[in-house]
């Protein structure tokens, strides 16, 4: 359940899964608490100066003062609500989940964490063949070369399939 909530906040749940999870959230007070806690983490991270504890109780109080509307709920309204909830979850996503995960996982588990993040992260621009000249020229004077010998030169010759193709097509310099 916790996992699903964090995935929901990440905006990565499919629409039908979202619906069933939201239904369960409505019924399960413990899950609602988790939901609130995760959002609180996000809020604290973004605005540590404006934190009010137990927001849900206050909101409930205010809700009771609200007039009840005796009109049938249009399907559109429901849709809008869901869209809003989703976008709110998405905006909190990265910060909230990463913060939560880094609380749970120390630097030791970093490789796994990095892998997970890569799956979500957009593809980074790869080096062009020409950039290797700069990399090589830089590596000569980098402290990392003094610490690891030539091992870090691997950065300059690390292969990427497209790059090799480019190299072959441009020919020899």
């Amino acid at each position: 359940m916790k996992q699903e909530i964090s995935v929901l906040m990440d905006g990565e749940l499919f629409e039908d899964e979202v619906e069933s999870l939201l239904d369960r959230l409505k019924q399960d007070p413990a899950a609602r608490k988790n939901w609130a806690a995760y959002h609180l983490i996000g809020d604290v991270l973004r605005q540590p100066d404006h934190i009010h504890c137990d927001l849900s109780a206050k909101v409930r109080e205010r809700m009771q003062d609200e007039p009840t509307v005796f009109a049938p709920h249009g399907r559109m309204a429901k849709q809008k609500m869901r869209a809003f909830a989703l976008s709110a979850a998405a905006s909190l996503s990265a910060i909230g989940v990463v913060a939560w995960m880094s609380l749970q996982i120390g630097p030791e588990a970093a490789p796994q964490l990095a892998m997970q993040q890569n799956a979500m992260r957009p593809v980074k621009a790869q080096f062009q063949a020409k950039s290797n000249d700069y990399l090589m020229a830089h590596q000569e004077f980098s402290p990392s070369t003094d610490m690891s010998g030539g091992a870090y030169y691997i950065r300059t010759v690390s292969y990427e399939t497209e790059e090799i193709q480019m190299r072959n097509s441009t020919g020899k310099k």
């Binding site: 970093a110 490789p111 610490m147 690891s148 091992a151 870090y152 691997i154």
Partner: peptide, 18 residues
Amino acid sequence: LLLKAAVLGSKNQLVEQY
């Protein structure tokens, strides 16, 4: 001798490792 070296980002995510 240096046996292992890791570079970590601001959220402790692994940037590279040798």
